[in-house]
Design a protein around this nucleic acid. Structure first.
Length: 392
DNA sequence: GAATCGTGGTA
DNA sequence: TTACCAAGATT
């Protein structure tokens, strides 16, 4: 067939307008008008044939239980497939059925989710499981509208669960689908509404779940944001970007994101008792960043502030009596979505004060089983343990 | 509509 | 090292 292109079709890069960037996208020739029944049929056949031959063997593929499909879809929100797989297995081992989940606590679901990020997801999954148990007799509702009302279920997840678990002929538009369809219908630049309409019109009513997954699979494995594998793509014959001589480079709305840079001082307070050392932790507020998770006490560092003095202030606020020599651990950087934090941890041997404090002592060897920690705090914990072993 | 919410992989 | 990015949802 085509011999003109290298495997990486990025030599003729065209500007691809972001979906959310500007408002003029619903104007101009409708992408839907070029989607004749014959074109739609051809796309379905090519896509599904490719999917049947090339789909990855993922643990949720072939699952019949709607609950399990739902769990997978929530885990996959803004999360790579490879990252989600081990969490998915552990989750189902611990909560095999929707009823098991509905009976769980916030702490239990967070513990399984620990390290996966976006921690409101498991909490909403739990809320929704209870709603399903109370209002739907323990079975997920089978309509798009009812699914959509469940906590943590938005347009994408409702479409995915509806089509995959229940065979509803509905669209499931994620980032992959947006990118694939934008390229396919280049240079018409369909906006968000048109993409939804295209996806709805395209879904194969006989195999809606497979069709939606096929579109996403093409997007994630072939029609990647950069350096897509056009020569292997089942849609290359129908692709407007390909026909136009260049594959649009994806421009993500993430490019406009503002990342705030902050520095924080962290107090790793160590209480050396007869039975061994203990660390002091406090719980983060239930809402907001890392809501409900635990951390070493700390404080934001003002511009030009001295980390050691700031650590001293944290120590005082907790009513602790510190030894004379705090030990500075190596600073470490951690990037969140909208924040980049440089942590300045200090290991400080202390004796607890007499007052009640909003924090909790945990034996060094029991931290993981007692608490749910964000990734950055685990890194600090590792540094602290190393320092203790070295005897500093 | 814009901002917020994590983490680890990749170029 | 920095920046981008991933099967989005909520406020």
């Amino acid at each position: 067939m085509s011999t003109r292109s290298s495997e990486r079709g990025n030599q003729d890069v065209v500007e691809e307008k972001g979906d959310s960037a500007s408002a003029g996208h619903e104007e101009g020739p409708s992408a839907l008008s070029v989607l004749t029944p014959a074109v739609a049929d051809r796309i379905r056949r090519h896509l599904l044939r490719w999917y049947d031959a090339h789909r990855r063997p993922l643990p949720w593929r072939g699952e019949q239980d709607p609950y399990r499909i739902w769990v997978a879809e929530v885990m996959l929100q803004q999360t790579r497939v490879e990252t989600a797989v081990p969490y998915y297995r552990r989750w189902l081992e611990r909560f095999p059925t929707l009823e098991d989940l509905a009976a769980a606590s916030d702490e239990e679901v967070l513990k399984i989710w620990e390290g996966l990020g976006y921690y409101s997801r498991p909490l909403r999954l739990l809320q929704a499981a209870r709603v399903v148990k109370e209002s739907y007799g323990g079975e997920l509702p089978r309509s798009l509208e009812e699914l959509r009302r469940l906590p943590g279920v938005g347009p994408y997840t409702a479409g995915a669960v509806g089509s995959i678990a229940f065979g509803l002929p509905v669209a499931a538009v994620d980032g992959n689908v947006r990118r694939v369809l934008t390229r396919c219908f280049h240079p018409l630049s369909p906006g968000p509404r048109q993409i939804e309409a295209l996806a709805r019109a395209l879904v194969d009513p006989r195999r809606p779940g497979d069709f939606n997954q096929a579109l996403m699979e093409v997007g994630s494995t072939l029609c990647r944001p950069r350096a897509p594998f056009c020569t292997a793509c089942p849609l290359s014959g129908a692709c407007g970007a390909r026909r136009g001589g260049g594959v649009p480079q994806a421009v993500s709305p993430a490019a406009a994101r503002r990342v705030r840079k902050v520095e924080e001082v962290v107090l790793v307070a160590v209480w050396e008792r007869a039975g061994g050392a203990a660390f002091l932790f406090r719980r983060r507020p239930a809402r907001g960043l890392l809501g409900g998770l635990w951390e070493f006490p700390g404080a934001e560092l003002g511009a030009g502030a001295d980390p050691l003095s700031a650590a001293e202030a944290v120590l005082g606020a907790l009513g602790l009596n510190g030894s004379a020599s705090p030990f500075p651990l190596p600073p470490l950087a951690h990037a969140f979505t909208h924040r980049k934090v440089l942590y300045h941890p200090f290991l400080w041997r202390v004796l607890p004060g007499s007052e009640e404090i909003p924090a909790r002592w945990v034996e060094e060897g029991r931290v993981e089983e007692e608490l749910i920690l964000p990734a950055a705090q685990k890194r600090i914990l590792s540094l602290a343990r190393e320092a203790l072993v070295r005897g500093t």
